[in-house]
Amino acid sequence: MTEAFRDRIDIALTVNGEPVEARVPAGRHLVDFLRLDLGLTGAHAGCEHGVCGACTIQVDGQAVRGCLMLAAQADGAEVWTLEGLTEQGVIRDLQDAFVARNALQCGYCTPGMLASIKELLDMGGVPDRATIREHLSGNYCRCTGYEAIIDAVETVAQARAGRITA
């Protein structure tokens, strides 16, 4: 192998606010790194080709597919998973609304849903149902039929805008 290429890469990043240093195989994607190396099993590995959205996490403030980013590419990044977001309490209202509306059954899609929804809600305003649907078009749920999820997002957006008390 050429000197410049490595099959194991040293990375330093923060995960859920904690500094992490590791040596990762070149082909290791970020979700496997989080789940298998760090034991953070919140983000799920479903299809592993970008279709299902179960692996969606927050990297440098944006929602990304954890299965379509290499751990090696996360060097220097700020990564948040459901565990950290929950601990920080930043999506407490959304999580409560999910429970209240029955917006999850098996829960497989939920961590990815929440990461995608967080990005939408962080944009501010009250998105209409079509916008919510469109934003979640890349997150598959095989249980709920989506309506309850849209309801939950709409409720939280309205509550955050001060339109209703959740």
């Binding site: 192998m1 050429t2 410049a4 290429f5 490595r6 099959d7 890469i9 195989p25 070149a26 082909g27 290791r28 994607h29 496997d32 592993e48 290499l70 090696a72 060097d75």
Partner: peptide
């Protein structure tokens, strides 16, 4: 499935 990369370098 899991990716098999030969190597990685950041330009």
């Amino acid at each position: 499935m899991k990716a098999l990369a030969g190597g990685y370098a950041r330009a």
